[in-house]
Simulated assay, not measured.
Amino acid sequence: MASPFQKYYALRVKNVFNNLYEVELTASSTALHDMRIELKKFKTILHFLKTVYPRHRIKKAAKLVASVFDEAGVLRETQLLQQWLQQHKMNELETMLGLQGSLLYSQHIFLQHIPKHKQALQKVIDICGPLVEETNALLPEQYMQKLKIEIQEQLKKNLTIEEWHDFRKKIKRWMNAIRWVAIEGDDFEEAHFPYFNNLQEAIGNWHDLIIIQDYFVALQAQKSIDKQLQQQLSAAQLTLLSGLQYREKQVKHLLQMPVQPAQLK
């Protein structure tokens, strides 16, 4: 009989190919986002397997997943920037940056590479499948417990802003790992852990704005930038700064909330 971890892995394999197929059909931002979420869950599995098996047995699979994830990330970040500009009605800046053309080009490249991505993911399955099958059923639970303890210890400290993003990754790994050890089936809802779900979402929203800020800073550093674009970017930076300050307050508020041990199952 398959263990919860093996069932979780099988579902990830099914979903990641279904999501990739949906991206191929629709090229929608939602489908792309869903695919990246599945790849993040796959990365959690790889992170766990690295704690069990020699790294050289996992290295190629991790590199292949990262290559698909990173290429999808380029497209996702362009979509993120466009959505932010449209949300704040900065149509002129969006046009000046040529975002629609950049987005169409990135979509075209990603869609062209889908056959390559399918082959890469099949190689990942060929590597990981046998390892998942031979993994002792107790080890996934030990991994989850280790993450739980690390999260508890970090919550006792005053996390710096520089640590937020990595801390979010750890929370996501822990929430993923719970599904493969503590829950019968695959329908566990993150709403059972509202505090941690809210915290990781708040950090994610903050980090999205950091990505946009980094893009603006890099663009403004270019010597060839014209005066009109510079003015538009400066105005956008002010709006962005206000949003960043708001998101930072949200994260800090959540980090300062007392967390009961019972919330970490």
Rank of each mutant, 00 (worst) to 15 (best):
K60Q: 10
S3H: 10
F48Y: 13
E134Y: 08
S28T: 13
A191W: 06
F17E: 15
Q256G: 01
T135P: 01
A2W: 13
K170I: 04
E71P: 00
H47T: 14
Q83Y: 00
Q107P: 03
F110S: 07
A262S: 09
G129K: 14
I211W: 00
A191H: 08
L264W: 07
L97T: 06
V217D: 06
T239K: 02
P140Q: 12
K123R: 05
Q112I: 11
V52G: 10
K148G: 12
L199Q: 04
S28E: 12
N19R: 09
L264E: 09
F196H: 08
N18G: 01
V217H: 06
V132H: 04
A2C: 06
P130H: 13
L25N: 14
H33G: 02
Q260H: 15
L139F: 13
A61V: 00
E94A: 12
K40S: 08
I45A: 04
Q250P: 00
A72R: 03
A61G: 01
G73F: 07
A262V: 11
Y246I: 03
A137Y: 13
M96D: 05
H253L: 06
E162S: 13
D187M: 07
Q154H: 12
H165A: 05
P261K: 08
I161Y: 06
S106E: 11
V217S: 07
K118C: 14
F42Q: 03
E134A: 10
F193N: 09
V65G: 07
L147C: 02
K265Y: 15
D214M: 11
K265W: 15
Q79K: 02
L219C: 11
E24L: 00
E190T: 03
E184N: 15
K14F: 12
G101D: 13
R179F: 00
E71Q: 14
L64M: 05
A191D: 09
L219R: 13
E24N: 10
P130C: 15
L39N: 08
L99M: 08
K123N: 05
I45C: 01
K60S: 08
H165C: 01
P140H: 10
Q245Y: 04
I211E: 08
L81C: 09
L11T: 12
V74A: 15
L85K: 01
V124E: 10
Q256L: 04
K148P: 00
L85P: 03
A262D: 15
K172V: 05
Q142H: 09
T160W: 04
V65P: 04
L199I: 04
I149A: 06
Q232V: 07
F48E: 04
T239D: 03
E189K: 09
L75S: 07
Y53R: 03
K265F: 13
L46N: 11
